[in-house]
């Protein structure tokens, strides 16, 4: 039974919009008729720290948390956060990584270094990788804030949910005035090669 459960991990830095992306994904899975469980981080962990949201769907889902090496897709809005949660991705899973570096305070203080070889690390760590400039794509569409939905569009390539479920989920999750923008942002990510 458990092999029929699809797990997705979305990661980033507090404030990047990971939680909205996971909400859209969960809603799309629900619209497609699946049992869904999600988990997100609150409180202390949101103050600029690493943020991870986990979504699991299937005929019947038990644990809301994703086990190691079991996620179909790992989507990350920040590069080192992709590597931080790499262990959750299945060996043949798809990684979708936004080409953005947010320098942690530990680096600015000189206590740690931001890996300079990040791009080559990503290509080595993830056999199946979509490396995209979600922020710039969102900016071109009119609002940099939609980077999370561009990323989600690319994430959707690794999942088996139908177009209509995604569109309905986006419409239900964002404010009317941002609907068009987010639908376009999603499509940009989904059609990315």
């Amino acid at each position: 039974m458990s092999e029929k459960i699809r797990s997705v991990v979305l990661a980033g830095v507090g404030g990047q919009g990971i939680l909205l992306a996971s909400e859209v994904l969960a809603r799309a899975a629900m619209i497609a008729g699946y049992d869904v469980k999600t988990n997100e981080v609150h409180g202390m962990a949101q103050r600029g720290g690493s943020v991870i949201a986990q979504v699991r769907y299937g005929p019947e889902v038990y644990s809301p948390l994703v086990a190691r090496k079991s996620a179909l897709v790992l989507g990350a809005l920040e590069q080192i956060e992709a590597l931080r949660f790499a262990d959750l991705l299945a060996p043949d899973g798809l990684a979708v990584v936004n080409a953005q570096a947010i320098v942690p305070v530990t680096v600015s203080m000189g206590a740690a270094k931001y890996p300079q070889d990040i791009e080559s690390r990503l290509w080595k760590a993830f056999p199946k990788l979509i490396y995209l400039k979600a922020a710039e794509m969102a900016k071109d569409l009119g609002n940099i804030q939609a980077a999370n939905i561009v990323l989600l569009g690319a994430v959707s390539q690794g999942l088996d949910l139908p177009d209509e479920a995604w569109q309905e989920a986006i419409a239900a999750s964002v404010k009317e005035k941002f609907r068009e923008l987010n639908l376009k942002a999603f499509e940009a990510g989904r059609s990315l090669v």
Partner: peptide, 10 residues
Amino acid sequence: FSQDLPPRPP
């Protein structure tokens, strides 16, 4: 590839 990543504490 996930070794020595800079921590990102709150």
